[in-house]
Write a protein that binds this DNA or RNA. Structure first.
Lengths: 147, 147
DNA sequence: ACAGGAATGAGATTCAGTCTCATTACACTG
DNA sequence: CAGTGTAATGAGACTGAATCTCATTCCTGT
């Protein structure tokens, strides 16, 4: 993919600006936080992280912003089975990926596998539904928890 | 698998009896309700259904019973991405399966695919985690919603 | 700089799921 | 088949994520 120079946050900001009028400070704070993180964050984690930052953002705003980002396909929900919903940026260049979840400590680790993807692509054609997305979660115990 | 004659509820009841001492009426009510349903139910749906039945069961008991049934691998959690967790019987003869979820009407359709399973089995060995389970959900629109 | 409307914040509210503890009922024993 | 120890159950308080409301703030185009 071209233009790896533009950050995801900048890209998302442009898309947001194009789709509606205002683009407040709360949005920018959420975008930058999401962009800086290696993996999916929950709304509560975002709220906590921003509370102690230079730009705190209210819970209602966080959920509103996440909803809109999801509608615009700029972020993606990650349901890791347990409690909270997590969200992560959809980066153009990145490959599509899935998640390992440690059932002991809750850590989420991304992975991707082309054989899996091709099996899914193939399967999607044979199934009684127009498949738009798929989600794969492997559960177990991570290295630090088994030690 | 042999003995298809025995209902899942009866089988589950035996397993429960073997694994601990008491087997109360609340358990029997939950087992029978689960057995009679075509697809996965949420805890709240179970509570509602039993409230108006001849054997109401308290919420705490329902969650306790579901937890135990899951530990014994008699039922399986189904996280269809959205809100509530759903549970469905694991019937011996059935193969391990996953779910298609229609994002318009919420219908859940089971499917299984051996190529997918083998890709997952294979992948599980190469990943930095001791993988115990996996969950695959395909989202999209079912036939009746696309028409 | 200003006006109008979108974005935001604070807090109340909802709702699934958990916890506690008093009560009930099962299952074994004699 | 009554008694007893222990597991199961029920009622309701509680938690925590997510939603809603509405007053306030602050973008953005003019």
């Amino acid at each position: 993919m071209a233009r790896e120079a533009e950050s995801w946050a900048a890209h998302a900001h442009r898309v947001l600006a194009a789709s509606r009028h205002h683009t407040g400070a709360a949005r920018r704070a959420v975008l930058e936080l999401l962009d800086s993180q290696p993996c999916a964050l929950s709304a509560v984690e975002i709220e906590d992280a921003l509370r102690t930052s230079e730009r705190p953002v209210a819970r209602a705003s966080i959920y509103r912003i996440l909803d809109e980002l999801e509608r615009l396909r700029l972020i993606q929900k990650v349901q890791v089975g347990q409690a909270m919903t997590r969200y992560e940026p959809v980066r153009g260049g990145d490959e599509h990926h899935h998640h390992l979840v440690c059932d002991s400590c809750g850590t989420v680790i991304p992975f991707s596998d082309s054989r899996l993807e091709s099996a899914i692509r193939d399967l999607s054609r044979r199934v009684p539904m127009r498949v738009a997305e798929h989600e794969i979660v492997l559960h177990g115990e991570c290295r630090s928890c088994t030690d």
